[in-house]
């Protein structure tokens, strides 16, 4: 939807104002939706376990909109897109491995806390 004008150099892709405003209103709608589901969610009978994944899905849709249209990714070189998205892979790796590890030894810490904090005299 980038209006490609013959006079513009090949690397210049202005995005139409219509599309930009469309994306913006979409983003606002999603923001309102996510606040609303979080505020009323349980009231509307949504199971609480649902709320968080839903919020994240909405955030990801918003991120997709921003990336694709505001950031021109849709028209960008695929190498740039790949470079950008690869960062997410490494973040996942970082989070995944540390989470796996701390999750494993968490019970040890909790046991330690329970034993030690119970005996602590904090009254000074």
């Amino acid at each position: 939807m980038s209006e490609h004008n013959e006079d513009l150099p090949a690397f210049c892709h202005p995005v139409s104002t219509k599309l930009l405003f469309g994306v913006f209103f979409g983003l606002i709608g999603l923001t309102i939706l996510t606040v609303a589901t979080s505020a009323l969610g349980t009231g509307l009978g949504m199971p609480p376990a649902f709320a968080f994944p839903l919020a994240m899905v909405i955030a990801t849709i918003k991120a997709f909109l921003v990336c694709a249209f505001f950031m021109h990714m849709y028209w960008d070189k695929s190498f740039n897109v790949l470079a950008f998205l690869s960062s997410l892979l490494f973040v996942t790796l970082f989070i995944g491995m540390t989470m796996m590890d701390t999750g494993e030894y968490q019970p040890t810490i909790e046991a330690f806390d329970r034993n030690n904090l119970a005996n602590v005299d904090v009254s000074e």
Binding site: V23, F24, L27, V35, F70
Partner: peptide, 27 residues
């Protein structure tokens, strides 16, 4: 969460104006 939501909207709006700014510069 309402303050947070307000700020989200402010930032989204700034993103829109930024995108429009880029468009103007391109033209």
């Amino acid at each position: 969460k309402y303050l947070g939501g307000l700020n989200t909207i402010v930032l989204l709006f700034s993103s829109l104006t930024m995108a429009l700014g880029v468009r103007s510069a391109q033209l």
